[in-house]
Design a binder for these strands. Structure first.
Lengths: 346, 346
DNA sequence: CCTCGTAGTATTAACGATAATACAGCACCG
DNA sequence: CGGTGCTGTATTATCGTTAATACTACGAGG
């Protein structure tokens, strides 16, 4: 903290008015006549006065800060979310407190506690596990404004999130409609109990009367480019006859694409690849990647709106509401054209 | 802010001790006997007490928060910096306040002011312009702990940053040593007065006795993949005989690489490409990219160390110190092999 | 037996702001 | 001419914590 910032008291002493008069003048109270205000404002400028937000927060019982808990900020989607949230909140006069849980439940608990200690007015949370959110439910029970950015409809906590099931369904259906019958799924969500994308994939197959083949399912160890490469390697080692691969995120898809480049598998001729999230690099990959678009602006916008409405809810505390945003597909080169039986991999 | 959090006063009332006794007990003062402490701690747990950091900050005159001003969090380097800073600061018991200046000087001023109002104990700043930092100098003059993450040695403000000149020198020299004589530079830093990389490039040429050719210099409009593609297009439209391209960041290099892919220019056979920053996607590009490594851990670690030492400096306020971290090269496929006169572009 | 130190606890004063209330002085009105 | 209301300002309380100081009881020492 700066050693010796000017306080209201200092301005009061210099101008000869009382602290309260100075405070009122600077806040534009109509009870202070223009001449008095002029003197005070002038002195405040001269002394480089900046109100102490800490003191203000204490008496006003609001910090105008909102905590954002991310699992991992290097994930391009979360980076973009962080950016969008910070931008919108600063527009609304809030500061954003960031913390990353690094996908560890105990760390998540700790950062939430830290935010609570700092009296963040509300929180936006990407829980590291959809199924273990008791500590978050407890927050809500104590009337703390919380909005999840990934959530179950039956979580009992407000949430605004992408309808991953619908996204996976749409993408898989698109591949089916393009003539594919043997569609692999490279999936990373398993460990945290995220089966929405798998569900959507299965539903699309079922809707088209295609039986689900476990051989076409590859569980990647993590969710970055390297894991995508490895998963694609695993897949190509099986005899599956896959003509398309749907990846549960774009980094995995880029890894799969790179594997194809290295092995001379032509995309989309030999293999179509569909990603998820539509990150910036998807568009600019060696072969531009088709992807399920994560509409970050829409989701963060709604989540912020919700958390602020909870903050402003005085007496009547509304029932939790889960908003699902249905994603659109972005079709690019990696899934171009109708697929006709020709070459296959594996 | 949560509607009804337990306060010291509430614990005091429940246990029958005074507020001060409760405070001392919870902070582990030796003056409180074990039995008293036990009762108080028990009650605190039962009431789910969490100290109010706002009140604490007010009286302790420190918020244990540090502001980080970034130009643009979607820049992968800055994302990684944000992550590293947040991680290290949280380890040290600080919270990180983020804000982005979006490369606008007035916004930068505004967010710095916001941090000052919130009494951040110190700030780490990526200034949007190396040359216009008067407002930051003024901060330091008021004994506010600030450390720049990009800086001039003569800025008069503490800074810890990558030696971009040395990095550019090293990369260009590497290309020269690989046999290249016609080395283009795709450069984005111009508008903000960042000429370090250009300088390093020119120094390397001069050291090798190669004359600088302005035709080989392409100023990109921005610094993302699209701009790299465009810049490469511009370059290939000139008759320059370039055999290598050094790009002032990896996104530009990825764009250049993509242009080559599209136009059938083989990398590195027809053209070597060297990037800058060594972002994650550089390694996983269609052709793995050689790059100047930005040692984020080292730089953020030193910067944090410095800002904290400034925070703890009581009376003696040390003279500003600029620390330059010399980067290493990461050589990958995109600059593989010695270059022999064969095909050229342009 | 009276002082003195000390252990345990309480009281009071900060921190820097806002909010509620109080109090002059003056104009207006019946 | 006394009350009433307004205008401009000051006083006081409050937010939840820490820090400095004050008190009380008790045991030890001269």
């Amino acid at each position: 903290m700066a050693k010796s910032a000017a306080r209201l008291k200092d301005i009061a002493q210099q101008t000869g008015f009382s602290v309260n008069t100075v405070s009122l003048a600077l806040r534009g109270s109509p009870r202070i006549p223009d001449e008095t205000r002029r003197q005070i404002v002038e002195m405040a400028d001269k002394m480089n006065y900046l109100p102490n937000q800490v003191a203000k927060s204490l008496v006003m019982k609001e910090t105008r800060s909102i905590g954002l808990v991310l699992t991992d900020i290097t994930n391009p989607v979360l980076t973009a979310v962080a950016q969008a949230v910070e931008l919108e909140l600063s527009r609304l006069g809030y500061i954003t407190l960031f913390a990353t849980s690094n996908n560890q439940l105990d760390l998540e608990r700790k950062v939430i506690e830290t935010f609570r200690q700092r009296r963040a007015d509300g929180m936006l949370i990407f829980p590291c596990n959809h199924r273990q959110i008791d500590h978050i439910r407890k927050l809500r029970a104590r009337n703390y404004p919380v909005v999840l950015l990934v959530g179950d409809p039956d979580a009992g906590v407000d949430a605004v999130c992408m309808d991953e099931r619908a996204g996976a369904f749409k993408a898989t259906t698109y591949l089916i409609d393009s003539g594919h019958r043997r569609i692999a799924l490279i999936h990373s969500g398993g460990e945290n109990g995220n089966f929405e994308k798998l569900d959507g994939y299965k539903m699309a197959l079922a809707a088209a009367g295609i039986p689900f083949d476990p051989d076409l399912l590859v569980a990647s160890r993590g969710h970055d480019v390297r894991n995508g490469f490895g998963a694609m390697e695993t897949l190509s080692g099986r005899t599956t006859g896959a003509t398309a691969v749907f990846c549960s995120n774009d980094s995995l898809a880029l890894g799969a694409l790179r594997f194809c480049t290295v092995r001379g598998i032509s995309v989309p001729r030999d293999l179509a690849i569909f990603g998820f999230d539509n990150i910036e690099f998807a568009e600019h990959a060696a072969t531009a990647l088709s992807s399920v678009n994560y509409d970050i602006e829409a989701i963060t916008g709604l989540a912020i709106e919700r958390v602020i409405s909870l903050i402003n809810a005085k007496a009547e505390w509304p029932a939790p509401r889960v908003t699902l945003v249905e994603p659109d597909l972005v079709i690019r080169e990696s899934t171009a054209g109708q697929w006709r039986p020709a070459s296959r991999i594996g």
